[in-house]
Design a protein around this nucleic acid. Sequence first.
DNA 1: CTGAAAGCGCTAACAT
DNA 2: ATGTTAGCGCTTTCAG
Lengths: 338, 338
Amino acid sequence: MMADKVTSFDVARLAGVSQSAVSRVFTPGASASAATRDKVTKAAEELGYRPNTLARAMITGKSRVIGVVVAYLENQFYPMALEYLDRALKERGYHILLFMAQNDGNVGQIVEELMSYQVDGIITASVDMSNDIAKRCDDAGIPVVMFNRGQETGTLAQVTSNNIEGGRTVAHFLASGGHRKIAHVSGWQGSSTGLDRMRGFVDGLKDHGVEPVAIEDGRYSQDDAAIIARKLCGTSDRPDAIFVGNDHMAFAVMDCLRFELGLSVPEDVSIVGYDDVPIAAWPAYDLTTIRQPINKMVTATVEILLARIEQGAASERIQIPGPLKIRGSARKPKGFST
Amino acid sequence: MMADKVTSFDVARLAGVSQSAVSRVFTPGASASAATRDKVTKAAEELGYRPNTLARAMITGKSRVIGVVVAYLENQFYPMALEYLDRALKERGYHILLFMAQNDGNVGQIVEELMSYQVDGIITASVDMSNDIAKRCDDAGIPVVMFNRGQETGTLAQVTSNNIEGGRTVAHFLASGGHRKIAHVSGWQGSSTGLDRMRGFVDGLKDHGVEPVAIEDGRYSQDDAAIIARKLCGTSDRPDAIFVGNDHMAFAVMDCLRFELGLSVPEDVSIVGYDDVPIAAWPAYDLTTIRQPINKMVTATVEILLARIEQGAASERIQIPGPLKIRGSARKPKGFST
DNA sequence: CTGAAAGCGCTAACAT
DNA sequence: ATGTTAGCGCTTTCAG
């Protein structure tokens, strides 16, 4: 067990050069002769030297760390986002400092910690208090971009899929499939995503002269979604199609219909979700859903954030369209095209 | 947009005290008079001062950051572990720097980065190259504990559930249920967890005078598991029970049996998994499985790691027993007790 | 191109 | 209890 106490001075001594020479060799855009570079590299190797990122961060003012704030990791969408995020960030030489937001809104604490760790930027992924965090950090001069959540108005950077368009597409699909008694279990109506999907959906239905028979706020909770499904479909007057605000709630709705109410999907009721998480493709659900282009969304998020960090670019608000992924959980219109 | 350039000097000036006084007020175990504390707190508040963690880390040699290395986030078990980990660590004043291990084993790179960020400790969660990373970091003097993976021999710290016992319990359960043609789709046989579950299972079966009809390595892959299921159950000579090495593979096996082969679970084939991720409780699967006590495992992991970091305690290797969670995917023995 | 010197913001002896 | 003084390990002018 040898502690990692090798400093640039040790390397300098062994290499017979100055400490700053060592620094230069390890600093990407610095000048050093081939000879020096060689000696230093060798000495460093021999001693197992590795620049101390903290020291570097202190002096440059850049930690190369991005604070990522996420809320629920139970919905498969977020772990996946995290995975992509890490990959994209690593490629650019950044790392993720993880913050789990408890729902009991300790926003202040999180902001404090983010700042004290000198993160270069922040990504909030679908966190309820995104706006709050974002505003405070942005005010403090730390670039923030909100992933998969936005605000109605404002200038904060954000990346979402085109939720309005997505909702509209689902409406078009369902109405074209001949459904007329259509309900919606929305995503949390306190979130832009939930709201937009709902609005797009209602709007799209209107184009077909259809009014939703019910709209209930599922609040992104599987339990709530199941309760709503039970209520909606427990009577003979049930809807023949339900658009559910995200896949995880859709799974809960399907389970409720099939195993509790003894209904068939899609024969009795068509179900459409939103996200296209991997589970949606599992045969047990085979869920028709709007695919959130997570990869593109992540790429855009990282792009925008780093542009802001490295070039001081302006905040952007991006919407990426997500196609309908047609599977077996909803009756298919003949010759349907989005 | 005001940059966060407030230092302890600024606060000191405004408060009319020395810079070290400010430092003391913000250092947990330091002495300062109520008066000083008061003045400083006020001044800090007014200026929006927040100690620079990096500077502190540099001097104390403690970053209060734990590097967490994970591989697949698609298996729900890991995101959950991550969530618990964050909670437990946060409680002790630590944060998570996240590292995704690509399978193409860039171990060296990850180790480099972990060290250069001066993490105080490392947790590797079910990463294939756990051993490799662990050894190298441990050699460098950074405490490591392996979560949900271990090594046959050695002294590196590790926390797992009692996989041997778990496998044995499943064997007992299945045999008691009257099954005699029992197969096993194992976890990756290159991992201690996969191996132990398999061994315990085979051993437990032996107690009942039963020999498994087949053992195949599912390598923790859903695709592989499905392929194996297809092969195993595609003939009339199929097993009447399958123990699958983790829940996610079990879901794939069930889907294959039900939707591809037209078989019923548990009527035709009983399925038992391992992990008890939330999905296992969803009605569509209702999976009987060994529950990995993730919360206890995480608590123990954090405990061991911090004991090593803060008190220089020795490495521990802990196994936590996991009970069988009986649901509907496997025929139930009458009056069964573990 | 290279070395010397000045810090980054803070903690930890050391005196007082 | 408080101020003074050294640095932590590194990057970055600044001369040479």
